[in-house]
Computed example of a mutant assay.
Amino acid sequence: MLRAGFNGLYQLFYWLGGPKQHRVTFATMRSPELTDNLKVLHAKFVQDSDMDLKVFCYHYDRTLKSKIGFLLASVQALRLLARSEMFIIDDYFFPLYAINKHPNNQVVQLWHAIGSLKHFGLSLPTADDSVIKPHTNYDWVFINSEVDKPAYVAAFDIQPDHVLATGEPMMDTLMAQHPEPHAGAKRLLYSPTYRPDANGEAQVLHYIHELITASEQLKQPWEIYVSLHPYLSLPEWQLPKNVHIFQDATRVKQLMPTIDVFVTDYSSLSLNFSYFERPILLFTPDYEQYMAKNGFYVDYYHYLGAPHFDEAGALISFIAHDLDQLDLSYVHELKQKTFPHQDGHNAQRVFQFLMKQL
């Protein structure tokens, strides 16, 4: 029913006008504004082209209010898609998968994360459960490294020659940064991965609470920053003054050069952070469960080479007593694997290719 309705609306919008010449739309349903790849590439189009640029942003956070608004937002998105020569997205985009797309509405996927660590898209064990097959109708996919291509081909059901390893535009911003020394307390950034199952949100919040509680063991002053996935709800907790929980992809990128140690479970932000050659630690209390439910493209612990812990207390104890002696060769190796393009021209390569398609 939903497929028929969405497809009918798309076809109606298409036949009422069709794609407008030189119209390029940047669209996301993961945040209320353009971030990361979309933000950088949009700025490039503004600077170096005279395209008719449109922006569509909707923050779908899975609350009831968001679900109701999602239907209206989807109608708006389908209208923009039908009227655009090129439609550029950065994440799962449900309305797109419910339609029979016309070839002259080109769709570009600029996935919001780099690398190929954990399974995503059609590689997920639950992908076949979807009534409407996700991650379809992509014409072009841009990735960070050639070694990631098999994962993206599998995740997005797309021909290999339409997956282009140009380097991701948002990496240009990262490479313009340098590790920044700072006075005062040391800084820890914790970025837990989103878990989509029914108990996923409670599970993530439990791990955050464990880490915050364990951090009270630290005798030296530390500022603890927790980056919460955009699909989760911010908890209403009474936090210690040195603990900061937020949902802001831009703030994460701004903080990274100042962070002394990065902690995650399965987030690809570990790859981003390797650029600064500072310690990366893994807090993975549900590793076996996550591997069974989600899975990885790589031998996860071996690929990252980072110390890993299944208890928050052990993690914090390591930070307190052993962090200063940690050999960072594993971080240096990870950086070399992750960043084959370090010239700061990723956005330019993507922009030039897309302009040739218009």
Rank of each mutant, 00 (worst) to 15 (best):
L228G: 03
Y152N: 00
P19N: 06
Q247H: 09
I280P: 04
R62I: 08
A151Y: 04
L334F: 08
V204M: 01
P134K: 09
L218M: 04
H135I: 07
Q106F: 12
Q159S: 14
Q203A: 09
D161N: 15
D324S: 13
Q203P: 00
A306L: 00
V350E: 01
F351N: 12
A113Q: 05
H341L: 09
V252H: 02
E333Y: 13
T28Q: 06
Y300Q: 04
K335H: 04
L122E: 12
K219Q: 15
A202R: 13
P150A: 00
D343N: 01
R23G: 03
P169L: 05
H341G: 02
P125W: 07
L34F: 04
K118E: 01
A113N: 00
G18K: 13
K335G: 05
L218F: 02
L78G: 02
R349V: 01
V153W: 03
Q109R: 00
Y266T: 06
L110C: 05
D322I: 15
P279A: 01
A155W: 03
Y14S: 02
L315E: 05
K335S: 00
N242T: 05
L38K: 09
Y92W: 11
G200H: 03
V108E: 10
L205K: 14
G184P: 00
Q21H: 12
S130G: 10
Q348K: 15
M171Q: 10
V46Y: 07
